[in-house]
């Protein structure tokens, strides 16, 4: 499959997701939603990894190079997923802890450290 879908299409999809996620981190106020936008950005990067793993970056590479990059890209995705899972567990714990202190959830409230 995917023989006739150009690489750039995957990259454009990833780019749109990354941009939207980045904008969302800036404009949304709910910390959980901000967190979700970060997840969105992570996933767009995963998509890029996989697209490059499938198509390779350099044209005209040998089969060994292609296989190595294919494996490397997929394994990077696995690690990103594992790290994202750990990050979500801790991050949501932090949000819950802040909520317990402040009884509301808004990123602009989390300013107790600004001195």
């Amino acid at each position: 499959m995917a023989n006739d879908v150009p690489l750039s299409w995957f990259l454009i999809m990833s780019l749109v997701m990354f941009t939207v996620g980045g904008v969302g981190v800036v404009i949304r106020r709910n910390p959980v939603v901000v967190f979700m936008c970060i997840e969105l950005m992570l996933n767009s990067v995963n998509l890029t990894f996989l697209a490059f793993a499938r198509y390779g970056i350099t044209p005209g590479q040998t089969i060994e190079q292609a296989n190595a990059s294919a494996m490397g890209g997929q394994i990077a995705v696995i690690f990103v997923m594992a790290v994202a899972a750990a990050e979500v567990a801790v991050g949501l714990g932090i949000i819950m802890a802040i909520f317990r202190l402040k009884n509301r959830a808004d990123v602009d409230d989390m300013s107790a450290l600004r001195g």
Binding site: D109, S111, A112
Partner: peptide
């Protein structure tokens, strides 16, 4: 009871 100084 958690006392937190909120500068706001």
């Amino acid at each position: 009871a958690v006392t937190l100084v909120d500068p706001n």
